[in-house]
Amino acid sequence: MMETIGIWVAAFLTLSMFSFLYKDNPFYKFAEHLFVGASMGYFIPYTFFNVFIPYAYNPLFLRHNYWLIIPFVIGLGYWFRFSNNLGWLSRYPIAFSMGIVGMGVPMSIHAQILVQMRTMMLPLTNINLILIFIGTVSILLYFFFSKAHEGLYGKFTSVGIWFMMVGFGASFGYTVMARLSLLIGRLQFLLGDWLGLIK
């Protein structure tokens, strides 16, 4: 019974959203505002049961780890974020959580720069590896603005633009695919789960 009601509710809300394609209307506004509220509503119980209870409440109040009163009090600073006078208290927990970016420096240099460059500079044993090398270098030079893009150098950097355009074309083709998949998913729900027309 609840499953059937659920499918009808979902179908009504799906059609309300689609109604925007005709023009903005109260059904769409209703669906949009409901979505925003319900999405945020999910955050609170999940955080309470899956984060606050195991990480703050249990260690402090059940296992009596009283040292944790300090981060507990600092964490309460978040609640003053919207206060005009005491808003600065929220900077303490934010600053504490930002500290870990220190680890991001060596880690991202390794994973995003060094590994990528190392692979790029492998022995250029076939035409594809040579093309990847030329493409990457020409794009990097294209974004190097301290030298005017003229003459042979300018021609080489324009090769970089071609590589980029092909790359953006591939992304664009995939983006078309992504958006259509979302539409297919919803129509599959309406035709299959709701109307039972897909076998």
Partner: peptide
Amino acid sequence: AVSAADNYPYLQTGQLVGLLGGL
């Protein structure tokens, strides 16, 4: 699928062992 094409460099380096792109 939107971000599938962006991740091919990680496949070549072996930082990714596999990739499922979109539907």
